[in-house]
C-alpha cells in the first residue's frame, strides 16, 4: 500500500490537471484495489459478494464526480478509502431497505448469486441446512437441490409463492452468514 501511494497520488494530481491517460491508469488500478476491498468486506459481513462490482462502480463514480475534493497536499489512499467506506455503508443501508420493501426481488437476486459449487466443494450441505429453520429447509431442498419450481414447492407447503420466496431468501441469507467466515478465509 505504501509503495502504491506515491504512484496513485501522482496520477491523481495529473488527472486533476486534465490528463486523461493518467486518469485511465488510475481508475484501472483503483478498480482492482477496490474490488479486493469490497469482496473482503462483504464476505466478512456475510453479505452477497456478487454485489462487490456494483459498489466498486459506485465508488469509481464518486471518485470521478468528487475528484476535486482531493487536496494534493494530503495523502491519497485515506481519501480513497474514506469514499469507499462511505459508499459501502450507503450500499448496505440501501440493500437492507430493499429487503424490507421488496423481499421478492431480493430473494431472486440472492439465489442467483448463490454459488452452489463453492458450497458443495468444501462444506457439507446437510450440516449447513440443519442450521436454519425446518420450514425454510424444506423449501430450499425442493427448489435448490431437487430442482422443483417455486410454485411447486409453495403448493407442497400449502403457502403462497411469495411466502415461499421469502422463506428461500431468509434461509439462504442465514446460510450465507453461516459460511461467510469460511469462504472468506478460502479467498485469501
Amino acid at each position: 500500500m505504501k509503495r502504491q501511494e506515491g504512484a496513485l497520488r501522482l496520477m491523481m494530481e495529473q488527472a486533476q490537471l486534465g490528463d486523461a491517460t493518467a486518469y485511465r491508469t488510475l481508475l484501472e488500478q483503483l478498480s482492482s484495489l477496490l474490488r479486493a476491498y469490497m469482496r473482503s468486506k462483504l464476505t466478512q459481513m456475510g453479505r452477497n459478494v456478487a454485489d462487490a462490482e456494483d459498489v466498486v462502480q459506485e465508488v469509481l463514480l464518486a471518485v470521478h464526480t468528487r475528484r476535486d475534493t482531493y487536496d494534493p497536499s494530503e495523502p491519497f489512499t485515506p481519501w480513497l478509502y474514506a469514499i469507499a467506506r462511505y459508499k459501502l455503508i450507503d450500499h448496505l443501508r440501501r440493500s437492507k431497505m430493499a429487503h424490507a420493501e421488496g423481499p421478492l426481488d431480493a430473494a431472486e437476486a440472492m439465489s442467483d448469486g448463490f454459488d452452489h459449487t463453492a458450497v458443495e466443494s468444501g462444506i457439507d450441505m446437510e450440516k449447513l441446512l440443519a442450521t436454519i429453520p425446518q420450514h425454510s429447509q424444506r423449501v430450499i431442498r425442493d427448489v435448490k437441490l431437487d430442482g422443483r419450481s417455486v410454485a411447486e414447492a409453495a403448493a407442497r407447503e400449502g403457502i403462497t409463492e411469495a411466502a415461499a420466496k421469502v422463506r428461500i431468501h431468509r434461509g439462504l441469507k442465514a446460510m450465507t452468514v453461516a459460511i461467510g467466515g469460511r469462504l472468506w478465509r478460502e479467498d485469501r
Binding site: 488527472a15 486533476q16 490537471l17 486534465g18 490528463d19 486523461a20 486518469y23 485511465r24 481508475l27 484501472e28 478498480s31 462490482e53 466498486v56 462502480q57 469509481l60 463514480l61 470521478h64 475528484r67 476535486d68 475534493t69 482531493y70 487536496d71 494534493p72
Partner: peptide, 23 residues
C-alpha cells in the same frame, strides 16, 4: 454495465478541476 465500460465513459473528455473549490 461493465467496470471497463464505466472507466471508458469517465475518461472521455476529462476536464481539469480545481481542488480549492470546496474550501
Amino acid at each position: 454495465m461493465k467496470t471497463a465500460d464505466l472507466i471508458n465513459r469517465l475518461t472521455v473528455d476529462l476536464k481539469p478541476v480545481d481542488y480549492r473549490r470546496a474550501s
